[in-house]
Amino acid sequence: MSVPVLETHHIVRDYHVGRTLFAGGQVIHAVKDATLKVEKGKTLAIVGESGSGKSTLARILTLIDPPTSGELLIEGERVDIIKTGVSKQMRRKVQMVFQNPYGSLNPRQKIGDVLAEPLVINTDMPASERQDRAQQMLKKVGLAPEHFNRYPHMFSGGQRQRIAIARALMLNPSLLVLDEPVSALDLSVQAQILNLLADLQDEFQLTYVFISHDLSVVRYIADDVMVMYLGEVVEQGSREAVFADPQHSYTKTLFAATPRADVASIKARLARRAAEIA
């Protein structure tokens, strides 16, 4: 069996808040004991509401923040960013796409420069090659070559998210962490971006960690699902298992709260409503 792209053992992250010179303050356990494993070419979805620790976990997985304790392995290699920092090779393996495509692009940077920047920082590639690579990537994510010299404000939300995905892919990463990549987008644009992610996954054998609170998107895109609640991993398993037979009460609450758009449940609601009025 091949080595999983991403593996963690008992990741914990605590935050100390309100500490002053004289008082100890409080400890917030943002992530408690997260153990997970993602194989190559698969998608793990992390589901949870605000405050569940899913974004904190994402920051740990993308080597932005260190865990308080626990082990993080990327392609079988142990990473400890406090002791050894992040090497350029490691940075190339893991990339991230953020939720807000309006906030995650520099408004003063042209798209071509946005795409070339990861190469400038992490490789010794000459400028001409960088430009070629950026042009190719632009085409891959469904944008045109004439977009190369434009600024972020000239693009719609969906196009900006394409740019953010393109930037993340410039270094040929094996792992892409996507933090709510479609929740700021309209339904039709969401469908385009989800399709793009599926195409890219097929083409480059990408591994995704997909963070979302939208269960219908998760059900569509994920292979495995992990549900977090108040920092705790309350449920973990294959998509089929979790959706067919949720074990934890929070997962059940979450499913019950998700709006249903099928004809049968609309009929049921209208019948209930008619009964209430009568």
């Binding site: 719609s156 309209d186 469908a191 399709n195 998107v217 895109i221």
Partner: peptide
Amino acid sequence: ALPDNATGDRLPTIGDFSAE
């Protein structure tokens, strides 16, 4: 375009009504 209604492994998109 609702992921709930997805049948294949790609979602249909609003081609005729391009949102760009």
